[in-house]
């Protein structure tokens, strides 16, 4: 069997699965650059796993089989989870769908490195071996991390530092799936067939559910942002809860800071409308070009945040939409 065929069979399937996940996401939530970063993070996690596994197995004095069943899944899933943690912490994940794509991307990078390593140390393995590694093990790596990311995203709503215990349920599921796969409870080819049959259906069901949720969030959020913007633009902000609140805190801040707070509310509403507009256009099948004026708006946003200061931003917190999705949409625009 040629090396080219072995590489193709062991590496291509997981990339095709990843491409399929990206294609069925009608909102195009994850940019290509971000997907590449997740793949690279997976490669790095694979390298780190190799180093840890080489040190840890002799230290634990375990044979390869029990180590691969009980210890390697914990090490490997935990290292893959590190980038999921980073993405959640930086509000780079808005929905279950983009969590799944990032997670599968990390698993893809991990599987790429692992299968290339096996190709190097086992160049004479049969085609069946590479079929199992390409369609089974590689998809298992992608799927396990995708599930880890989806569960963690579902549990993590608030922006800022991610509480580590929120990652534990997703990590546990990923470790159990990985460990079961390594137990070879089923024949390797049967396990591979099961993964190939089950994972696409599971992905489609999760994506359909998440897309309905995204559509509802878009509609409700767009209308709320539009209402706030109308109030600010028409000078009737004092009639809104935000305006009444600003009135009560005006004695605590200099007048120019109160003005900047109003400007910040308006700018955040404008950017939120823009972000949701982009998503609605993608939902309808359009591919809008990036707006060149956005750079200036983000500079203005940063200026206003500096001018208002941490205390002022804290005071404004109840009226600045700062859920993970609100921050995610700003990141999406800023990185476009």
């Amino acid at each position: 069997m040629t090396t080219v065929l072995a590489v193709a069979v062991s590496v291509l399937p997981v990339f095709l699965f990843l491409a399929a996940l990206v294609l069925i996401d009608s909102y195009k939530l994850v940019a290509l650059r971000a997907i590449l970063l997740s793949i690279i993070a997976g490669v790095v996690a694979g390298l780190a796993s190799y180093v840890v596994n080489v040190q840890l197995r002799p230290a634990l004095d375990l044979d390869p089989a029990p180590y691969s069943m009980y210890v390697a899944p914990v090490v490997e899933e935990a290292l893959k989870a590190a980038f999921v943690l980073y993405l959640l912490h930086r509000s780079r994940v808005g929905f279950v769908v983009d969590a799944a794509i990032h997670g599968f991307g990390i698993g893809t990078g991990f599987a790429l490195l692992e299968n290339l390593y096996y190709l190097r140390v086992n160049p004479d393995a049969t085609l069946w071996t590479w079929i199992v590694r390409g369609f089974g093990t590689a998809i298992m790596h992608g799927g396990a991390t995708a599930i880890l990311a989806m569960v963690s995203k579902t549990l993590h709503h608030r922006p800022g530092a991610v509480r580590l215990y929120l990652l534990l349920p997703g990590l546990s599921v990923a470790v159990v799936l990985h460990s079961l796969y390594n137990h070879f409870l089923l024949q390797p080819l049967l396990a591979t067939a099961l993964i190939v049959l089950v994972f696409p259906w599971l992905s489609i069901a999760v994506f359909q559910h998440s897309e309905r949720e995204t559509g509802a969030w878009l509609g409700a959020g767009f209308d709320t942002d539009q209402e706030l913007l109308r109030a600010v633009r028409s000078g009737q902000v004092s009639a809104t809860p935000a305006g009444r609140y600003l009135h009560t805190v005006r004695s605590s801040f200099p007048a120019e800071v109160i003005v900047d707070m109003l400007c910040l509310l308006r700018l955040r509403a404008e950017l939120a409308i823009h972000a949701k507009g982009v998503l609605m256009m993608r939902e309808a099948g359009f591919d809008p070009a990036p707006d060149p004026a956005l750079k200036d708006k983000f500079e203005e946003l940063r200026y206003l945040e500096r001018s208002i200061g941490k205390t002022g931003l804290l005071a404004l917190h109840p009226f600045l939409h700062t859920s993970t999705r609100d921050l995610w949409q700003l990141n999406m625009l800023n990185e476009a």
Binding site: F222, Q226, L229, R230, R233, E270, I273, H274, K276, G277, V278, M280, M281, F286, P288, A289, D291
Partner: peptide, 15 residues
């Protein structure tokens, strides 16, 4: 003007 502003902000006027 209000509806136009929302269309401009959301980027709809580009398409």
């Amino acid at each position: 003007p209000d509806v136009l502003k929302v269309l401009e902000l959301s980027g709809f006027t580009t398409i």
